[in-house]
């Protein structure tokens, strides 16, 4: 009955990556452009100009934007890229990918036919989560290479080893929006559920961090902000924070496990 059935390894993951490689490349270019736009400004901003700019800004704004370290190369890279535009753009990719993985596929009516073939629901969630991880990991490598390439010319003075750790921690942070979106889609059955869940995690984490920066009595909010876990310790300057790394990794795994659980127990395709 089975004449030398050589099944490809991880067929669903391979397909998910192949289907999105064009858009992955476009995102890589976008991220590189943002880096190329911001990082070279550092030499002209460091020094008295920056001091004057910071002095002119309200203190609340500086702490909300985590700009208090902006006068150093590492602080500048984190505040302008990893803490802001880089975070927003990477989160958008992760959330979009996660929301499409199950919820979007189901919205388009494609999930039904896939599940009627020789796959399990667990396999669908896991392979597509893996595709999400690989896609984001590729973009993080592009970011790493981009920052490293600009490190000398932009006089940032970053240590490549520390930067690896910072990017790894950053990867787990943006991935969290993606796995939350995947979970939302797997539980709710629609892309919009996924997008909402992912945005809640990403934007919510950002807001809790910004509010927590506003003073002693609001600092407790940091404890609930994945954004703060990942970036609060100034990883571009100081390297990995192991408890943050494990916390973020654990939460990602938990979201994927919950997505498996949610998809396994419900009807697909709705009423």
């Amino acid at each position: 009955m089975t004449p030398a059935a050589r099944r490809p390894v991880l067929p669903l993951m391979g397909k998910a990556l192949l289907d999105t490689w064009r858009s992955t490349l476009v995102w890589a270019l976008v991220l590189l452009s943002v880096l190329a736009l911001y990082l070279p400004l550092y030499p002209s901003m460091a020094g008295p100009e920056m001091e004057r700019l910071l002095a002119s800004l309200p203190e609340e704004l500086i702490s909300a934007l985590d700009y208090d370290q902006i006068a150093t190369g590492a602080g500048y890279a984190q505040a302008t890229f990893f803490g802001l535009l880089g975070f927003m753009l990477s989160s958008a990719v992760a959330i979009g990918t996660g929301a499409a993985a199950i919820g979007g596929d189901e919205d388009e009516g494609l999930l039904e036919l896939t599940l009627a073939h020789g796959v399990t629901r667990t396999q669908v969630v896991l392979e597509r989560s893996l595709a999400l991880l690989l896609r984001m990991a590729f973009l993080m490598m592009v970011i790493y290479a981009g920052v490293l390439a600009l490190n000398g010319p932009s006089e940032l003075g970053l240590d490549p080893g520390t930067l690896v750790q910072a990017v790894a921690q950053f990867l787990l942070l943006v991935l969290l929006g993606g796995t939350a979106a995947l979970l939302g889609g797997a539980a709710g059955g629609h892309r919009t559920h996924g997008t909402a869940a992912g945005a809640l995690v990403a934007v919510g984490g950002y807001m809790l961090n910004a509010l927590g920066n506003q003073g002693e009595d609001l600092q407790w909010m940091h404890a609930f902000s994945p954004y703060h876990w990942a970036l609060g310790g100034q990883p571009v300057a100081n390297g990995v924070d192991w408890s943050a790394l494990w916390g973020l990794a654990g939460l990602n795994v938990l979201f994927v496990a919950l997505a498996v659980f949610a998809l396994r127990r419900r009807d697909v395709g709705g009423a």
Partner: peptide, 28 residues
């Protein structure tokens, strides 16, 4: 072998690649 009543297919893919994919997950 299953044919859904409301058949939805991916849009940006040739029939051949689609069949290759289904063969990969169902086959042989």
């Amino acid at each position: 072998g299953y044919l859904p009543g409301e058949l939805a297919l991916e849009r940006r893919i040739t029939g051949r690649r689609m069949m290759d994919h289904f063969a990969a997950i169902s086959g042989p």
